[in-house]
């Protein structure tokens, strides 16, 4: 589906090289291009690693700032050798882990604090339900059950199937061999299917525990 076909790989690599050259030439304006080129992927993954959309924006911004601070310390050769997308997503993963750790140290918010929207895909859900019941229902349930996967499986599935990374990049972000990444993806998908099957659609949201 979203997996990169052979045709666009060359294009993407070319774009990636241009971007690396821009970063070497002028870090700040190159970084503006980097954000434009990668914000959608980074934010899409951040959304699946966060419980609230505002947390996802914070997380994505934090990841880009960490990337910028790292780039400032790199010489031209090191920048030129970066594989930007998996590098950015690895930073995002680490930032998400730090955020989760910090959140665990803080006392839980009061019960009324979490808006109900967090369990759905967005504010427009209610209006689009009529038009696309089936597709939307599945997407909305998926968003919820994805959160129940173990971290490595969730990240593997999101990287491979939400943002369409090739398995080799998934492995790079997870920091594991390709074979292990493949098995995380496959186990994650089967786990998703099991979760979707075992839970009736209207019991799903009520039964989900807020982490």
């Amino acid at each position: 589906m979203r997996a990169c076909g052979v045709g666009d790989t060359g294009d993407r690599e070319h774009q990636g090289e241009q971007l690396l050259l821009a970063l070497v030439a002028d870090l700040d304006s190159g970084f503006a291009e980097l954000v434009r080129a990668h914000e959608r992927v980074v934010y899409s993954v951040a959304l699946r690693l966060s419980s609230r959309p505002t947390d996802a924006e914070d997380l994505a911004a934090e990841a880009f700032l960490r990337a910028y601070r790292a780039l400032r310390g790199y010489d031209a050769e090191r920048i030129a050798s970066l594989r930007l997308r998996p590098w950015l997503l690895t930073i995002l993963r680490n930032a998400a882990r730090n955020a989760a750790r910090d959140a665990a140290r803080r006392p839980a918010p009061p019960p009324g604090f979490e808006p109900a929207e967090q369990l759905t895909c967005g504010p427009s859900v209610e209006h689009s339900v009529e038009e696309q019941v089936e597709q939307h229902d599945l997407g909305r349930q998926l968003g919820a059950v994805l959160a129940q996967l173990p971290e490595a499986q969730r990240l593997a599935v999101v990287l491979r199937h939400v943002v369409g990374l090739p398995t080799s990049e998934v492995a790079e972000v997870l920091g594991c061999p390709d074979g292990t990444a493949k098995s995380h993806i496959s186990r994650g998908l089967h786990r998703l299917r099991a979760l979707l099957t075992e839970q009736p659609s209207d019991g799903l949201i009520a039964g989900r525990t807020v982490r």
Partner: peptide, 9 residues
């Protein structure tokens, strides 16, 4: 499922 996942972008 993979189709619906791709729509979560």
């Amino acid at each position: 499922i993979t189709g619906a996942l791709a729509d979560l972008t």
